[in-house]
Simulated scan of single mutants.
Amino acid sequence: MNADTALTPATDPQGTAGRPPVRAATTTDAEAIIRMRSAHVLSKPLDEDWIRRCTQELAPRLTDQGDARAFVIDAPDGTMAACALGLIHPVLPAPAYPRGLAARVHVVATHPDHRRLGYARAVVSALLDHLADVEQVTLFELHASVEAQPLYRELGFTGSPALMRMTRLEQSAAANTELGSPGRLPAEQYAETVLKATAFACLYFTDENDRPLQLHSVYSPAHPWQLVGGTMDHGERPWETAVRECREETGLPVSGPPRLLATVYGLPGAEWPYSTIGMIFDGGRLTAAQIRSITLDPQEHDEVRVLPLEQWEGLMPTRDFARLSAVEEARRTGQAAYFGTWDWGNA
């Protein structure tokens, strides 16, 4: 991105004798990088036409004036053993990125014949160091596979695999001095590095025979039958969310006091890029008259159903039924449940 700075020369970042050195990629490496991406990153390999098109797109960007930077390791036979490609882009300046520059680690790939040799760490470390020290990028982002997530966490990235982030601040020492607490980031900057999650709160209702009550969703095929509840609004506490959602979704008033039945946690996935944390409270037992009085919001639900627990199993995804079963057991035993596997993208 900086026209007046050249890419760093080839170096051996680990200083290991006999190990092929990491070097900065040039325009002539564009095709090999694209083929590494096609073969070892993408879920479906590119055909030759797309290989050519992507190579023509990348090559001019791998120059001092371009926005792409890459580092590679060459195999003894002259092919590419590993590569890491980053794309620099402008963002609005902020204390965490005062120059208004960010970089996305777009491709990290290692040929299967050269894995478990530290090559991925070597090329990624070289790329991050160059972007930070030469290009003066301070905000880094990437999408990680579950397998690669531990490596990126060791390098300083935080967040979910769907979006991991890291900031490297030139002025961090001065900022720490101002805080009077060496080694700590200012609160605003630290907040950008921690886990991001959505939160929800629900109520578990049954009829007078302890049969679970659920609502049929009109908008979520992935979760067709749902407890009464929803996502927390800003400024709300979980019980307040449960009461508000119950009023909006059913018209039923809830007086409390709150009785927590289960805490739910889910990892991010293909369906949602953030972790999910939720609390499920006991809504009590409803009379037949109360159930008949339920008024649904047609934009959210179109049916109320009460069934014995075992009959719900065939109507719900596996993870949803497992959660419902845990909540039912918590109500029955009086011992609050922890359901920590309500992950996004799992059946």
Rank of each mutant, 00 (worst) to 15 (best):
T295M: 03
V105S: 01
P253R: 15
V124N: 01
A201K: 04
V243S: 06
A262K: 04
E141Y: 00
L324I: 06
I34G: 03
H234A: 15
R211I: 06
W344E: 00
D113Q: 12
L307Q: 13
L58P: 02
A337H: 04
D12S: 15
F200V: 06
I51T: 12
R323Q: 15
Y152S: 01
Y219S: 06
T341N: 04
A70F: 03
S220W: 11
G66T: 06
Q14R: 14
E249I: 07
A3R: 15
L151V: 06
E240Q: 13
D74H: 09
P212W: 07
G18E: 11
T250F: 07
P253L: 14
A262C: 15
S275Y: 02
Q311L: 11
D12C: 09
H301T: 10
S38H: 05
F281R: 05
P9G: 13
A199C: 14
G180E: 05
H301V: 08
D343A: 03
I280W: 05
T8C: 04
T295G: 03
G229S: 12
W344D: 00
W272E: 02
V124K: 00
R37F: 10
A162C: 08
E249G: 09
L155E: 01
A109L: 12
F157I: 00
Y204S: 02
V137W: 00
F339E: 01
S220L: 14
T26Q: 11
R211S: 11
L46G: 01
D67G: 05
P182Y: 10
